[in-house]
Design a protein around this nucleic acid. Structure first.
Lengths: 160, 160
DNA sequence: CAGGATCCCTAAGGATACTG
DNA sequence: CAGTATCCTTAGGGATCCTG
């Protein structure tokens, strides 16, 4: 991964909270926030399940779910089973689903390089083959880290 | 993404720090650690450059570089320019390079959903097309979040 | 230049108790 | 069940000063 000359001066974007990576970390950069997203991908929707499966306190679950809802990664949705009162569930939004490559990427890295083995792998439900994260360009080329560089957008450039 | 029945009981792996995602977050789960890795991908190798480009204090730079070196994501390597004294540089290890999909994934999410636009995009240096993160199985199928499930490894199963 | 040492502040998070 | 409220501990990180 490299910079173009035009990007030699990072100060205009990479600091002051403009770096996209930093913005993402701001939202899901804590252990519990990320593990809540993991659970959401696993299909967990209820407060108590998030709390127990992530292994976090009630207060922490509440504040994280609230923050992730505010950031539009989760959507709070009322539901009612028959004979029961109305409850709330938390389901992934589109923005939340877009985080899947990151989740799988973290999972893959930890599986390969983490100290403690989990014995769990992520697989394609259709064919049973292990899932992997790849970086490709839109032309379809598989990229390694040296193939990627950062460039100021020129086509649909921002006004500011 | 779904669980198999065999994984209904998460307690044996997803808690107590065995979850691969959690293990990864333990290493690069803070803003500064992740941004240091970003810089390492950008080609930054020197202490002072990490410090200035990430926007962190000297002490924070030192402790994070030490931790990332201990975790084998960066390698400390002495070098010497002619006429200068010996200095240290920090370069990516293979394990560090394996984090690239995560970095690009975070970049992509922030670019799409972050509040503040950066005007920067990551592209394939070869053809100029934007880089994207994809999840595929080894058979080559492109996967969305519903296509992925977790399964206890059976082929090369762990001893414990 | 490349850190180490010290002090302080803030945010994340656990524990416990309480409520609609 | 789905949270709130309160209190406390710890880790991340900034600022400042010091050293080989």
């Amino acid at each position: 991964m490299r910079f173009e000359e035009a990007l030699a001066d990072r100060s205009s974007w990479s600091t002051a909270g403009r770096c996209p990576i930093e913005q993402t970390m701001k939202v899901v950069g804590s252990r519990n926030a990320m593990l809540i997203m993991r659970e959401a991908f696993y299909g967990t929707t209820r407060y108590e399940d998030f709390m127990n499966r992530v292994g976090m306190s009630s207060a922490t679950a509440a504040s994280n779910l609230k923050a992730l809802t505010a950031a539009d990664l989760l959507e709070r949705r009322p539901y009612q089973e028959e004979g029961e009162r109305v409850r709330q569930e938390y389901v992934l939004t589109d923005a939340g689903s877009d985080l899947m490559p990151v989740i799988i990427g973290l999972f893959e890295w930890g599986s390969k390089h983490g100290q403690r083995r989990s014995g769990v792998e992520s697989v394609h439900v259709g064919c049973g083959e292990p899932a992997e994260v790849e970086v490709r360009c839109r032309a379809g080329h598989l990229l390694s880290s040296e193939d990627v560089e950062l460039r100021v957008r020129t086509a649909d450039r921002e006004t500011r």
